[in-house]
Amino acid sequence: MPDLTLIVILVIALALVFDFTNGFHDTANAMATPIATGAMKPKVAVGVAALLNLVGAFLSTEVARTISGGIITEGENGVLITPELIFAGLIGATVWNLITWLRGLPSSSSHALFGGLIGAAIIGIGTNAVDYGVVASKVVLPALLAPLIAGLIALIATKLAYSITRRDLGKPDGRGGFRSAQIFSSSLVALAHGTNDAQKTMGVITLTLIAGGFQAAGSGPTFWVIAACALAIALGTYTGGWRIIRTMGTGLTEVKPAQGFAAETSTAATILASSHLGFALSTTQVASGSVIGSGLGRRGATVRWGMAARIALGWVLTLPASAIMGAFAAGLTLLGPIGILLDAVIGTLVIVALFRWSRRNRVTHNTMLNDIDDAGRVVKITKTPRRPGRREKQVSL
Rank of each mutant, 00 (worst) to 15 (best):
D3N: 15
L6K: 14
V8F: 03
L14Y: 15
L14R: 13
V17I: 15
N22R: 02
H25D: 08
H25L: 06
N29Y: 07
A32V: 03
T33R: 09
A36D: 14
T37C: 09
K43T: 09
V44F: 05
V46N: 04
A49S: 08
F58I: 03
S60I: 08
G69L: 11
G69V: 12
T73H: 10
T73L: 12
E76R: 04
L80N: 02
I81L: 14
I81K: 12
P83I: 15
A93P: 09
P106W: 07
A112Y: 12
L113E: 15
L113D: 13
G116M: 13
I118R: 02
G119R: 08
A129C: 05
D131F: 10
A143L: 13
L148C: 04
L160D: 06
I164M: 10
I164D: 11
P172K: 04
V189W: 14
L191E: 07
A192K: 07
G203S: 08
I205H: 07
T206C: 07
G213W: 02
Q215C: 09
A217K: 07
F223R: 09
A228N: 11
A228Y: 12
G236M: 02
Y238A: 12
G241E: 01
L252H: 01
V255H: 04
P257I: 02
A269Q: 01
A273L: 15
H276M: 15
H276I: 14
H276V: 15
L277R: 09
T284Y: 06
V291N: 01
V291R: 00
G295K: 03
R298F: 00
R299L: 05
G300R: 03
R304V: 08
W305F: 15
W305Q: 13
W305I: 15
A308N: 09
L317V: 13
P320L: 03
A321D: 01
S322C: 07
A323R: 11
A323Q: 03
L332W: 13
L334E: 14
L335I: 05
L335A: 05
I338F: 02
G339Q: 04
A344V: 15
A344H: 11
G347M: 05
T348H: 06
R356L: 03
R356C: 01
R362C: 00
M368V: 00
R377Q: 13
V379T: 05
I381L: 04
R386Y: 04
R387A: 14
G389M: 08
G389E: 06
E392W: 01
L397Y: 08
